[in-house]
Nucleic acid binder design. Structure first.
Length: 895
RNA sequence: GGGCGCGUAGCUCAGCGGGAGAGCACCCGCCUUACAAGCGGGAGGUCGCUGGUUCGAUCCCAGCCGCGCCCACCA
């Protein structure tokens, strides 16, 4: 096998093919190299697109708008496979709409990514032996801006490599001036409407990041712990509680039992002694307690457990904080200063010494929350934070989907959405960080609290200070669909491009982001939801469908694939798996296959150009059946691609186009065109036009997914400016031609049968075989004998022709071949016997059905008819095979 | 604990009431004048299991087995 690159030494093969081997015509275009080289093309094309301003949307345009806002990548991030998938889908949608004549805006931008970015810069400082506190708030924030300017937003460069047709002139950042203004505006409005409030609540606290977290920033995993049974109190007045968090007992202020639990009825209202502390705490009755779990008695720690906090509220219990912000014990006594995880065994040991431990169950697996940023175990903590009152906002967000104003694709995800918005807790939006939008609230010397709007001056004077906290990053992300368009100003962009057309993102952030954009969009934009459709895709996985993870070593870097296979191949690999909600398995082999597909298009177009294919003038009359067939297929393909695109089924789009391009166009149409081109004349002239037409349309259809190679080829083929701005194909129903399709199907069948015979007989492609054909007219392909001969490599019967084998094909075509004894009669007989068995089975099946009275009366007429046809076809096959076997036994058995 | 989904060719998946499909991998043959990143041919599946509905089930229903995901404040 020749190595790639070391190709055949055929004369003229490697050299640029500029001469037409069939007509001698010289190609009209600069020569295309024989193998597609993505790197140079991509760089040149992208620069050209930007220079031409194709992606810059015009708010003053008369065209209907089509808008997508990008799921804003983190400023700290780089392009991973998830982006490659997400961006490929969006770019495909936006490019198609642009071609369809919409004013298409794909809005790019970056998220300031509060915790993530602060962590990056803090790590840098740590390397210098500094902490953010050494710098102070102002200098630290300046340092983060400096970091952003120098190393942030790497992904925006990688997006250019992927070919994203975003409008760079509108690039936004969640911390830039217009977006900051949007944040200040909505905060003020929500505050004034009573939808933002400050309260002391149990929140998720990360003892490492030292900040509050919202529910969605907490990941739960099943961790092993131990359930410890501890006796509180003495004798009659004692109760055994079960806990996984013994260290919090120092903050217990009650024991709770179920009101209907007879075992403990006598204890309700009684006080028991809390071990190790000498404090006495009451036993209270609360319906929250599950009598089935543990002992049916729960220790109550209002300051360190959300349930206990609520029990405490109901019963007027005090909250006793015994852990500080780092999770270190603050309660006076021998445990003071111990970390929470050191304190736990220490306290259990102390209790055991006192004989308080009744029993231990280990291991006990239960769900434990972890910080989604650093995986530290989250500590429920009582603290003073800012919250968004979500109930009314979430109701509106649910209604917008319920009443159909917003559609979620795939529909199955809708239920998940409802589960989320219908059960949403108030959203903790304050973070104890420095990088982010500072909460615009000032506190006065006498306990005043003033929320300051974007155009207002904060209160000045001694004793006034601004809230130290910043807002959750997702707060500004939730404004993205309208803050990027200039809200709160009434801008031309906002009027033209809001609401956006579709939001494309992974199902993993349906809740994180989508629900919140819905809430804020509906609120800020007077009930107009931020998008019409939410199109969810899945996660990119490895070729075994496994999640990509660093520890597994199966992570793919899309930039690596772009370098080695090209951006188009990378995009195609993503797109061909991208159906709504479906995970996308990818692998390097598949990316190589995608590269091969691009190369196939390259060579098909190269062939077409060297043979004078063009797109000038209308399609001629007098087209052959083959020409009419490919145009008929093209019309079908356009319609199907449209349908799949509208359903966000990119994988189907790819499937349809792949098979049309490779099977129909390359394997059949081009092969059938070759002899016509070689013969020259008006038929060849017609083929040149049809071939140009088919490739022109095909390249347009492919362009949204593989923009680079299609632009390079399309401009070479058509001489047009760019396929980026070429009109999207419209299916021409008048080109549908069932007769031509049937004719070509029959032709393909005959050719395939002959090829199979040749392969079975071990006849080399190079071995010329003379043959006599008959019965073509009966099969409806009377005109195609030359095509059958050239495609199946059969010579005309010359002098001394002697038929040594007869092949009978479905439809009554008979091929007599002069194989001069090369034929293996035994092998051929074996094959025919196999065919006969299959045909008999088929016929028997059909006969059985048709003999069934119930089938005939109950089944729909078309099904019965279809079955009759199946039977007829099977019987014809049987007759054909019997005839062939007869001929065979009449022939001579070869050695 | 609640909800959703999936088990079809070696792998990844499509099909979802009437003839088992694709890509890759595999086998055989080919430098056939666009492409060896290619061309032609081929093999490979009791459609998870058990019942039910139906003239007919990979497809609908029920149960079971196996797998995955999401949500969740049972200590």
């Amino acid at each position: 096998m020749p190595e790639p690159g070391r190709r055949s030494g055929r004369p003229g093969h490697v050299a640029d093919a500029t001469g037409d081997p069939y007509t001698g015509r010289v190609s009209q275009t600069p020569s295309l190299p024989p193998v597609y080289q993505p790197a140079e093309v991509e760089q040149r094309r992208y620069a050209g697109w930007i220079e031409a301003g194709y992606f810059t949307a015009d708010a003053a345009s008369d065209k209907p708008p089509y808008t997508i806002v990008i799921p804003l990548p983190n400023v700290t991030g780089s392009l991973h496979t998830g982006h490659a998938l997400d961006h490929t889908i969006q770019d495909a949608l936006i490019r198609r709409k642009r071609m369809q004549g919409y004013e298409a805006l794909w809005m790019p931008g970056l998220d300031h990514a509060g915790i993530a970015t602060q962590n990056v810069v803090e790590r840098q400082l740590a390397a210098e032996g500094l902490s953010r506190h050494d710098l102070g708030r102002e200098k630290f924030v300046a340092r983060v801006w400096q970091w952003k300017a120098e190393s942030g937003g790497m992904i925006t460069h990688q997006m250019r490599r992927l070919g994203d047709s975003v409008d760079w002139s509108r690039e936004a950042f969640t911390m830039d001036e217009p977006r900051t203004r949007a944040v200040r505006t909505i905060f003020k409005r929500l505050y004034d409407d009573g939808l933002i409030y400050r309260a002391e609540r149990i929140i998720n606290w990360c003892p490492r990041c030292l900040t509050a977290l919202s529910d969605i920033e907490v990941d739960h995993s099943d961790d092993e712990g131990e359930l410890v049974y501890i006796r509180y109190g003495e004798g009659e007045r004692s109760v055994v509680v079960a806990t996984t968090r013994a260290e919090t007992m120092l903050g217990d202020t009650a024991v709770a039992v179920h009101p209907d639990d007879d075992r403990y009825r006598h204890l309700v209202g009684v006080e028991v002694e809390l071990p190790l502390t000498g404090r006495r705490i009451p036993v209270v009755a609360d319906a929250h307690v599950d009598p089935e779990f543990g002992t049916g008695a729960v220790k109550v720690t209002p300051a360190h457990d959300p349930n206990d906090f609520e029990i405490g509220q109901r019963h007027g219990l005090p909250s006793l904080t015994v852990l500080d912000e780092r999770g270190v014990v603050t309660a006076h006594g021998p445990f003071q200063g111990l970390d929470r995880f050191e304190a736990r065994p220490a306290i259990v040991a102390a209790l055991r010494e006192q004989g308080r431990i009744v029993k231990e169950v280990r291991p006990y697996v239960h769900a434990v929350g972890h910080c989604s940023r650093c995986h530290t175990t989250v500590e429920p903590r009582l603290s003073l934070q800012w919250f968004v009152r979500t109930a009314p906002l979430a109701k509106a967000a649910g209604d917008a989907v319920r009443d159909g104003r917003v559609r979620i694709v795939p529909e199955e995800m809708t239920k998940r959405y409802f589960d989320w918005v219908d059960n949403m807790h108030d959203w903790c939006i304050s973070r104890q960080l420095w990088w982010g939008h500072r909460i615009p609230v000032w506190y006065g010397p006498d306990g005043e609290m003033v929320c300051v709007g974007p155009d207002e001056e904060p209160p000045a004077g001694p004793g006034w200070r601004q809230d130290e906290d910043v807002l959750d990053t997702w707060f500004s992300s939730a404004l993205w669909p309208f803050s990027t368009l200039g809200w709160p100003e009434d801008t031309p962009d906002l009027r033209k491009f809001y609401p956006t057309s579709v939001l494309v993102t992974g199902y993993d952030i349906l809740f994180f982001w989508v629900a919140r954009m819905m809430m804020f969009g509906l609120y800020a934009m007077d009930g107009v939801p931020p998008f019409h459709v939410v199109a969810l895709h899945g996660m990119v996985r490895d070729k075994h469908g496994k999640k990509m993870s660093k520890s597994f070593g199966n992570v793919v870097d899309p930039m690596d694939w772009i370098e080695r296979y090209g951006a188009d191949a990378t995009r195609w690999t993503m797109a061909r798996g991208a159906n709504p909600g479906a995970d996308v398995p990818v692998s390097e082999e598949w990316c190589a296959g995608s590269r091969n597909f691009c190369n196939k298009l390259w060579n098909a177009t190269r062939f077409a150009l060297t043979n004078g294919a063009h797109t000038r003038g209308p399609l001629p009359d007098g087209l052959s059946a083959v020409d009419r067939w490919i145009l008929s297929r093209l019309s079908q393909v356009i319609a199907e691609v449209d349908e799949r695109f509208e359903a966000y089924e990119l994988a189907r789009v790819c499937d349809v186009l792949y098979h049309f391009a490779w099977d129909d166009v390359c394997d059949w149409y081009l092969e059938l065109a070759k002899p016509v081109l070689a013969a020259g004349g008006p038929a060849a002239e017609r083929v040149r036009r049809v071939l140009g037409e088919v490739l022109d349309q095909l390249l347009r259809l492919l362009h949204p997914i593989i923009p680079f190679v299609t632009d390079e080829l399309w401009t070479a083929l058509t001489g047009g400016e760019s396929v980026v701005i070429a009109p999207w194909p419209v299916p021409d129903r008048s080109r549908r031609d069932e007769a031509a399709e049937a004719e070509v199907a029959a032709l393909q069948k005959v050719v395939t049968e002959i090829r199979r015979f040749r392969a079975d007989q071990g006849l080399r492609p190079s071995q010329r075989v003379a043959a006599r054909l008959s019965g073509l007219a009966g099969a409806g392909i009377a005109d195609h004998e030359p095509l059958v001969r050239s495609t199946a490599r059969l010579d005309d019967p010359g002098e001394g022709f002697a038929a040594t084998a007869t092949l009978t094909v479905t439809g009554g075509v008979v091929v007599e071949l002069d194989t001069r004894g090369a034929i293996d009669v035994a092998a051929e007989r074996a094959r025919l016997e196999r065919d006969r068995a299959a045909a008999e089975k088929e016929a028997a099946q059909a006969r059985a059905k048709l003999a069934n009275e119930a089938f005939l009366t109950r089944a729909p007429a078309h099904v019965v008819e279809q079955t009759r046809q199946r039977l007829a076809a099977a019987e014809e096959d049987l007759a054909r095979i019997a005839a062939a076997l007869d001929t065979l036994s009449g022939g001579r058995e070869s050695a």
